[in-house]
Design a protein around this nucleic acid. Structure first.
Lengths: 109, 109
DNA sequence: GCTATATATGAACAACTGTTCACATGTTAA
DNA sequence: TTAACATGTGAACAGTTGTTCATATATAGC
């Protein structure tokens, strides 16, 4: 099979621009230290904004701003209880993805 | 177990700043559409720079610039053959990580 | 009602990122 | 050696991103 055919075959297999875009946005949203820490924390325990703020030593506003893209991309979900908003990972899928990345890094530490 | 103790426990479990940093850089490097496409293509076939350039319709320079961070973070490896440089994914671990992300996105499309 | 608490959001600014351009390095073929 | 090819790299510029600050919304307790 000639190289040009191989390249053409890959091009056909490549997912739609929408899928590629959402996939890269999903990885990028995980690719900020603050959000990486938030995902790590939420993989251990459901937490509200104040608790995450205390944990990371950052302002409520900064945490709230960072939670939004995580929620927009369905990585986390929110549960309101009175005036508090508790966040947790959306599903085990996210936890698996995160842990795969963590294993990759730890194997090469 | 009081909430403050829970937060403290998470803080102790949280990996070192170096691990968090490398983990977030690993996700971030996957979080660019060009690099997402490169990883997808390399998960299908070993490719040289010209071939990736043709596949994505981008300059050799742009491809070469994007390959470096992928290599720096051990996501891909390089094999020189004459004047060509063939790239492929570093290990199945990367492919698993990438496919987990892809599945997450496709499930919600 | 009022006050404190918890979260969300828009604007603004510094810091970072990706592509292009120009050029450099190194290999193959004649 | 020369010319063409394949890749790598530094500078520069536009575009994007994350935090801070100020403010808004909403709930709880008095």
């Amino acid at each position: 099979m000639p190289r040009k055919k191989i390249i053409e075959a890959i091009r056909k297999k490549m997912d739609s621009p929408e899928v590629v875009s959402k996939l890269s946005r999903t990885f990028r949203v995980l690719g900020d230290p603050t959000r990486t820490k938030l995902i790590f924390a939420l993989s251990k325990e459901e937490l509200c904004v104040v608790e995450m703020s205390l944990l990371l030593g950052m302002s409520h506003s900064a945490i709230s701003h960072q939670l939004r893209p995580l929620k927009d991309l369905d990585l986390i979900k929110c549960r309101k209880e009175g005036r508090k908003a508790f966040y947790r990972l959306n599903d085990e899928h996210i936890e698996n993805l995160f842990n795969e990345g963590l294993k990759h890094v730890l194997e090469r530490a």
